[in-house]
Design a protein around this nucleic acid. Structure first.
Length: 221
DNA sequence: GCGACAG
DNA sequence: ATCTTGTCGC
């Protein structure tokens, strides 16, 4: 159903070259006006860090009911290196995506997209490999600076690096620590922020992320 | 040389 | 990511 993953980089040098190659395939466009389905993706690790569980959950964008779920167990495909994080989790996430029977209209990833040293974080990577609209919602920053964000839900501040807006620091709940939203592939920042707010009615993180987090965490126990 | 550093 | 309950600060 979705693109397969080829030979995987084994060194940082190879991973950097792969990012350079794939970055050229990122498409900049507004994104789906009103997606019918939204997917959340997440990975959890066991105590040793040798095993992981990946989950993808597809929700109905209107009522948030679960339309499909796919999980897989595996091993990290790369050490954790800031800026090369995608190489660790993408193979497992792609394998889970391939098990889906419902094609999601947009992928919402745990991590960053454009808000990355080379403008190609996990969300961009998964978007390009699947050619689905994708964006990232991170809990902490990787790069970039921003001005203080208003305390009210919906307030946002531009995340800037080297004079370029690479994402948004978005408040999803009054007085609660904001999240970091950035475009991945085939969706723009405004669309990503709007969708994030719609999916985070009650909690800091979008329901997609919360659902995926719960499922892959249970998978390891 | 010293911090910073998605998950 | 994960180890971890109560406790510190406003």
């Amino acid at each position: 159903m979705l693109t397969a993953v080829q030979p995987w980089p084994r060194t940082e040098e190879e991973a950097l070259a792969e990012q350079d190659r794939l970055r050229a395939r990122v498409v900049t466009e507004p994104g789906p006006a009103s997606p019918a389905t939204v997917a959340g993706l997440d990975v959890a690790y066991d105590d040793s860090g040798d095993r992981l569980g990946a989950a993808v959950v597809v929700l109905d964008a209107t009522d948030l009911s679960v339309r499909d779920t796919a999980v897989i167990k595996g091993r990290p495909a790369f050490p954790y290196v800031p800026g090369l994080f995608a190489f660790r989790e993408v193979p497992a996430l792609m394998a889970a995506l391939e098990k889906l029977t419902v094609r999601p209209d947009v992928l919402i990833c745990d991590g960053h997209g454009l808000a990355h040293p080379r403008r190609f974080g996990l969300a961009s990577h998964l978007g390009v490999l699947t050619d689905l609209p994708s964006f990232g919602v991170g809990k902490t920053r990787l790069i970039g600076e921003w001005e203080p964000v208003g305390e009210a839900r919906g307030s946002r501040s531009a995340l800037v690096d080297a004079g370029e807006t690479i994402g948004a620091v978005l408040r999803t709940q009054d007085g609660v620590k904001p999240v970091f939203v950035s475009a991945g592939h085939r969706i723009d920042l405004d669309g990503a922020c709007a969708l994030t707010l719609r999916l985070a009615r009650r909690f800091r993180l979008p329901e997609t992320t919360r659902a995926a987090d719960r499922i892959c965490r249970d998978l390891l126990r």
